[in-house]
C-alpha cells in the first residue's frame, strides 16, 4: 500500500536584506580572446580553408587519373585560366557576357518594379501580376530563345528578351510577397502621415519589404546568369564576339578541356565576386544594420 501523499508545504525561511558586494577587487570581467579564437573568428579565412580543401581533393583525384581529356588537374586548369586571361580572350568574353547580363537584369528589375507597384495599388494590377507570374515563372527562359531569335534576330535583343523573362518573374514574386507581408501597423503608420500612391510604396512598402526584395534580386541574378550561359552554349555567338558560354563551347569542340574548366571557373568567380562585393555590402548597409536580418 503506497502511503497517502502528504500535503507538501515549503519551509518558512527568514527574510534578509544586504548591501552590494564590493566589486573593486573582482579584476577581469572581460577576458580577451585567445589567438586561436581570434583567427577562427575570421569568416573569410574559414571559407578560404574550405576552398583549399576542395581544391586539394580535386588535385589528389586528378593527378593519378592521368586523363586530361576527361578530368584535368587543378594545376592544369589554373594554368589554362592564367593563359586565357593573359593571352586569350577570357576577360573580353566575360565582359561581353556581363554587359548583356546587366542590360537584361536592369530592364527586368525596372519592369518588375512597375508591375509590383501596380499590383499593390490596384486590384486589377494584382490579378494581372498573380496570373502572369503563375503562368510564366515555371516556363524556362531558355525555352523562349528560339522564339526570341525569330522575333529579334541573332543579336543582343533576343538575349535581353530572355534575360528579362528570367529576371522578371522570380523578382516580382519575391517583391510582391514582401509587400504583402508588411505589417499592418507599419502600413497604418505610413497612411497616418498622409502618404499615398507612389510615395507610400517608396517610403513604406519597398523599405519594409527590403529583405524579400533583396533576396529576389539575388535569386534573379543567379537565374539571369544561368540563362545567359545556357543560351550562349546552345546558340553560340549572338553578336560580333561571343561570351563566356561561347568560350566554353569553343574549347569543348577543340577538346581543350582544361580551358572548359577555366571558363566554368570564370563563371563561378564572377558569381562569388557579385555575392561578396555587391550583395553582401548592400546587405550589411541595409537589412543587417536595421536589424531586419541577422
Amino acid at each position: 500500500m503506497p502511503e497517502k501523499p502528504q500535503k507538501i508545504t515549503p519551509p518558512l525561511r527568514p527574510e534578509f536584506e544586504r548591501g552590494l558586494l564590493d566589486t573593486a577587487d573582482l579584476g577581469q570581467i572581460r577576458r580577451p580572446l585567445s589567438k586561436w579564437e581570434k583567427i577562427t573568428n575570421i569568416t573569410l579565412l574559414r571559407r578560404v580553408l574550405i576552398l583549399v580543401l576542395l581544391v586539394s581533393v580535386w588535385q589528389a583525384y586528378a593527378v593519378p587519373l592521368k586523363n586530361p581529356l576527361m578530368f584535368p588537374t587543378f594545376t592544369n586548369t589554373a594554368y589554362a585560366f592564367y593563359d586565357a586571361v593573359l593571352n586569350g580572350s577570357l576577360l573580353l568574353k566575360a565582359w561581353v557576357s556581363i554587359k548583356v547580363l546587366l542590360m537584361g537584369y536592369a530592364a527586368g528589375v525596372i519592369i518588375s518594379m512597375i508591375l509590383t507597384t501596380l499590383a499593390v495599388a490596384t486590384r486589377l494590377g494584382n490579378d494581372l501580376l498573380v496570373t502572369l507570374t503563375s503562368m510564366f515563372n515555371p516556363l524556362p527562359a531558355i525555352a523562349l530563345l528560339p522564339l526570341a531569335l525569330l522575333w529579334f534576330g541573332l543579336g543582343n535583343g533576343s538575349m535581353v528578351f530572355v534575360l528579362i523573362h528570367a529576371v522578371l518573374w522570380p523578382l516580382s514574386l519575391a517583391t510582391h510577397s514582401g509587400f504583402l507581408s508588411v505589417s499592418n501597423t507599419m502600413r497604418m503608420a505610413g497612411r497616418n502621415y498622409g502618404l499615398t500612391g507612389i510615395r507610400y510604396v517608396g517610403n513604406i512598402l519597398i523599405m519594409a519589404a527590403f529583405p524579400s526584395i533583396l533576396s529576389g534580386l539575388k535569386i534573379s541574378w543567379a537565374f539571369a546568369w544561368r540563362t545567359l550561359i545556357a543560351a550562349e552554349l546552345v546558340f553560340g555567338v549572338s553578336s560580333g564576339s561571343g561570351g563566356l558560354g561561347w568560350f566554353i563551347y569553343e574549347n569543348k569542340n577543340e577538346l581543350e578541356i582544361a580551358y572548359v574548366f577555366a571558363g566554368l571557373g570564370a563563371v563561378i568567380i564572377i558569381g562569388l565576386g557579385v555575392e561578396n562585393l555587391i550583395f553582401r555590402p548592400i546587405e550589411n548597409a541595409t537589412v543587417r544594420k536595421w536589424g531586419m536580418q541577422n
Binding site: T185, M186, A189, A208, W290, G291, M292
Partner: peptide, 13 residues
C-alpha cells in the same frame, strides 16, 4: 497622430 500598441510601428530603416 496614432500611437500603436505594437513595437513595429517604428521604421527599422
Amino acid at each position: 497622430m496614432m500611437v500603436f500598441q505594437e513595437f513595429d510601428q517604428l521604421f527599422p530603416w
